[in-house]
Structure formats: C-alpha cells, structure tokens
C-alpha cells in the first residue's frame, strides 16, 4: 500500500514505516496501528521511519506528540529516521527535536 503504514517489531523496538503523506487523515490510521502493534509486545522504543514520506503537516506533529506522551508514560522513547529535507524542516519548525531524537544519531552526545 503506497499510502499505508507498515510496522515491524524487533526486540523492544517498534518501527513505523510512514506513508507517503502524513496528514490528519493518515495520522488517524497510524494512531490505531501503533496502538495495536504495541499491544502485541513490550515496546520501549518507537521509531518513525520517514523514508517514503514527502509530505507532512501539523497533524503529523500532533500524532508524534501523542505517541511521545504514551511512550514517555511507560519510560520509553520516540525517534525519527530517514527524514527528507521537507519533513526535517517541518519537524524543526515544530520544535519537536527537543523531545524526539534522530534514531541514527542517538549515540551522538548532546542531541537531547
């Protein structure tokens, strides 16, 4: 599915492969999908992979914030990965990098 989200659990890490466009409509589906995926196994890290994504608006930010709240409630963490320049710009403008880190740079110090 081109505009769907796929999930993969590896250990305690849940990867959410984001759709081509992350808006209010697709965010609604993702919220349910992630909730269901988390029920199956204990997840301590949630990684949003934006490799396929070329569009995101503020609804996507709202969805990320919602997942961040859920994950931090259980002591987990949320990450983003493979962000295109556009997605990165949206994330930067929203200030969300103060609470969500890039998965591939998580071992570098000072990013939090």
């Amino acid at each position: 599915m081109e505009n769907g989200t796929n999930y993969k659990v590896r250990g305690t890490v849940l990867y959410a492969f984001m759709p081509k466009e992350v808006d209010h409509h697709s965010s609604l589906e993702m919220k349910d999908g992630i909730t269901k995926a988390r029920v199956c196994r204990p997840v301590t890290s949630l990684v949003f992979d934006f490799a396929k994504t070329d569009f995101m608006d503020s609804a996507g930010i709202g969805m990320l914030l919602g997942r961040y709240k859920e994950m931090s409630a259980i002591g987990g963490e949320v990450f983003v990965r493979n962000t295109s320049p556009r997605v990165k710009r949206i994330l930067e403008m929203s200030g969300i990098y103060r609470i969500i880190r890039d998965w591939d740079k998580k071992d570098e110090e000072g990013s939090r």
């Binding site: 919220k31 608006d57 930010i61 709202g62 914030l65 919602g66």
Partner: peptide
C-alpha cells in the same frame, strides 16, 4: 492530538 501549529 492537535499540535496547535496549523496557523503558525
């Protein structure tokens, strides 16, 4: 789950 950033 609205970010409140739409108008911004």
């Amino acid at each position: 789950e609205r970010s409140g950033m739409g108008f911004s």
